[in-house]
Amino acid sequence: MANLTVRQFIEGKGRIDLQMRLLAGEGGLDKEIKYGETNRPGLALAGFFDHFAFDRIQIFGQGETAFMEQLTEEARLRVYEEFFSYDVLCCIFTHEYIPDSRFLDFADKRNIPVFLSKRTTTRFITLFVHIIDEMFSESVTLHATLVDVFGVGVLLTGKSGVGKSETALELIERGHRLVADDMVVVKKIDESLLMGASSELLKHHLEIRGLGIINVKEIFGIRSIRNRKRIEIVTVLEEWDSAKEYDRLGLDEDKYTILDLDVPVITIPVRPGRNIPVIVETAALNQRLKKTGINAARELDERIKKWIISEGGK
């Protein structure tokens, strides 16, 4: 996990605009955000500082600000003094609320960044957690091609020259969408979600031996591409090896591990005359079917076992 500072968070928030503006404490912008969680400082403001999670981002919503406003000048100052005696990471006031000048003076003195946001508290926290999760997520770059096939993210792997890009091209021709060719940046967004995307530089391009580099978006149009896709199945393309046993039943599910997460994998032997894109399409559909609880191999097996007991036993 890379270090993330308050400044990097503000500058790199990406597509979602948290509508934040810095009010004070500019000197603390290079503080490191260590946790992806927020804290509502209500209890601290009421004087209870046990377990005060000062190293989280402090969110001041309408409740907190209303509480601060009804305090007497003297009580408020006491609270501020104690609050700012901690090395607070940063404070955010939602609903565009601007705290009093005393608060901002303290923040400047102690180098604690204070922001206001136009967002409501709940919305801000939801978006914040979403953004921070993605920023904190582990990432790896894989030599593979990622295609959205019938809404299933299929990662095509295999040695160079085995036909990953050609398979992707045929899939695009058949109406599926390219995410990344030959280099996929994978992020573990959540304990169960792997998101794949292209590097910004290579986006929407494909290299086909004999043709060279082509721009898929320009040739096939906007429907042929997508920017990111969850990886749900891995296919390993490999030269047909007659000595190797390939899965003939599909009863056992093999796993491919990416960033410590297991993804179902199928190995597809490549041989002239085998229509790989159709096999990949079918694998994607079969994966969808499995997700709805239908496992063809297992069900056929059950049927045969039943038949053996009832009919075969006679």
């Binding site: 890009s165 030959d182 530089l201 290579l202 391009h205 494909l206 290299e207």
Partner: peptide, 16 residues
């Protein structure tokens, strides 16, 4: 720490 396959043009270009 980003690895690219030396047999893939896209991969090598992607290293920037």
């Amino acid at each position: 720490n980003v690895e690219a396959d030396g047999k893939s043009i896209m991969s090598v270009l992607g290293l920037a």
